[in-house]
Structures are given as structure tokens and as C-alpha cells.
């Protein structure tokens, strides 16, 4: 549910022994640049340049905790529902959880043009994926990203496949599932379970949909047992924290970090 661009600035302090700070330079550089550059897949090009009237920047001005030095409480069991993968196959959303993998789930729509919404989540997911593959390649098989569309009308499996590009069904590295639903009837119970409010923006003069949607970006960290262990909202989605949280859950299960 955000309307203007915001420059994301990670003012992280020097990183602790492992896990922190790497995203500082990456994100502060990548995110503004991602609005115009071609280093990201094609959908990123749809994102407008930074609104010159935008007043804000999101600041994370704290030191993150090393993985395994804290506990993430079990918040709730991750809800399931009927979804479609990029091949159009019917699946249970819960099939994307558990199975020995720690999962990061977000709700997106492919035509989202709000830099503080889906593109930001996409950027964070991409950073998590590349960092995991670079720093903890032995654990990429124990982690998974899931992007579930809340725009089933436009985000058909075929469209999502294009949106995902090389990220979907990658032969190696961290798994990234792009999912949609057959219709709102399948989608809305899922959104309700995750308390994810979504609105169509309407033209104030005509009352007709503008084609954009408003939502408060939420990202859910789900453990190998299918329990939600952390929830991040857009304004406070710090990729360094997310990365360390993933490793913390992996350490619970005896994973060995590099």
C-alpha cells in the first residue's frame, strides 16, 4: 500500500563475525540502479525511476546479530491453499514449505510498479539467493524462495514463467518457486490466512481500475516444519537480517556454515 518511491539506504554498522553488512553496499547501489538498469530480469524494467517528489529513504541503522545467537519464536503454522506453478500444475501451497527446506514467502504481482513493494521484495530475494549461493553453497538445497502472485487474472502460469525468467526451475542453486492461483476463489483464503490486504487502485474520476494494486508488502520466513518464524514488512525488510534469520533456522537443524 505504498505509492511513492523511497530510496532504500542500509546504514549498517560493521558486520559481525558472519552474515552482516554485505547487503549494505549491494542494496544501496543495486536498488536505485535496478529501477533503470538491465542487470535484473525483464520485469524490473517496468519499474519507474525514483519519484523526484519522494521524501523518504528507509534506513536500517543498526548492527545485525550473527546467525545462531538468537531464537526465532514460532508464530503460527503456515497456511496452505491450492496454487498453480509456472507449468500450470495444481499444487498445495504447503508443498512449498517444509520438506527439509527453510522457505521465504512473499506475495507479489508481476506488473507491480511500486519500488517499495514487489520490486523491493524481488531485489531482496535476489540478494538472498545470490548471497546464499556465493557464501553458503552447501546449504542452497535446504532453502527455497516462493513468490505467490495475488493477481491471478493477469499472472497466469505463462506470464509468471516469463516474469521469473531464469530464476524459475533453475537447474542448480537456491530453488525459487513462482506460483499463482486459478482464481480469486483460491487466492483469497490464502491472503486471509496470511492477513495480506490487497486493493485495486481505482481512477478517482471514473471509478475504473487503474491496473495497479495496493498492498503492504509482507515476507514470511517458514521453517522446515512449516511454522512461520518471522514476518517482515516492507519498510523494515532488512536483507541482512533476513539472511541471518535463514541461517539461524538452518543452524537449528544442525547445518554447518562456511
Amino acid at each position: 500500500m505504498s505509492y511513492q518511491s523511497a530510496n532504500i539506504v542500509i546504514r549498517a554498522l560493521p558486520p559481525p563475525s558472519r552474515g552482516g553488512g554485505v547487503f549494505k553496499s549491494l542494496l544501496s547501489l543495486l536498488f536505485p540502479l535496478s529501477l533503470a538498469c538491465a542487470s535484473l530480469p525483464s520485469h524490473a524494467a517496468a519499474v519507474p525511476v525514483k519519484d523526484p517528489n519522494a521524501s523518504g529513504e528507509l534506513i536500517f541503522d543498526y548492527e545485525t546479530h550473527p546467525p545462531g545467537t538468537y531464537t526465532l519464536q514460532k508464530i503460527q503454522h503456515a497456511a496452505s491453499g491450492q496454487v498453480l506453478d509456472t507449468e500450470g500444475r495444481v499444487r498445495a501451497l504447503a508443498d512449498s514449505f517444509g520438506s527439509g527446506k527453510v522457505t521465504l514467502l512473499s506475495f507479489i504481482y508481476s506488473s507491480c510498479a511500486d519500488p517499495n513493494g514487489c520490486p523491493y521484495a524481488y531485489t531482496v530475494f535476489h540478494l538472498i539467493k545470490s548471497r546464499m549461493e556465493r557464501e553458503q553453497p552447501q546449504l542452497t538445497g535446504k532453502t527455497r524462495l516462493v513468490s505467490l502472485s495475488f493477481d491471478p487474472e493477469r499472472d497466469t502460469p505463462e506470464v509468471l514463467k516469463l516474469y521469473a525468467g531464469a530464476d524459475a526451475n533453475a537447474a542448480k542453486g537456491m530453488q525459487w518457486d513462482f506460483l499463482t492461483t486459478a482464481s480469486l476463489r483460491e487466492l483469497i483464503p490464502i491472503l486471509d490466512a496470511y492477513r495480506q490486504d490487497v486493493y485495486f487502485d481505482l481512477d478517482p474520476k471514473t471509478g475504473q481500475p487503474l491496473g495497479t494494486m495496493s498492498h503492504v508488502l509482507k515476507v514470511f520466513l517458514i521453517d522446515r516444519a512449516g511454522d512461520v518464524r518471522e514476518i517482515y514488512t516492507a519498510s523494515y525488510l532488512n536483507p541482512d537480517v533476513v539472511y541471518n534469520d535463514i541461517l539461524t533456522l538452518l543452524l537449528e537443524d544442525g547445518a554447518a556454515l562456511k
Binding site: M1, S2, Y3, Q4, A6, A54, S55, G56, L58, N116, D197, Y199, V216, T233, A234, S235
Partner: peptide
């Protein structure tokens, strides 16, 4: 409730 706005939305 559609009128609600996030604190950080710069709206």
C-alpha cells in the same frame, strides 16, 4: 479500512 496508510508510505 482502505484509507489506512502505512507509517512509512510517504503518502
Amino acid at each position: 479500512l482502505k484509507e489506512l496508510q502505512p507509517l512509512q508510505a510517504r503518502l
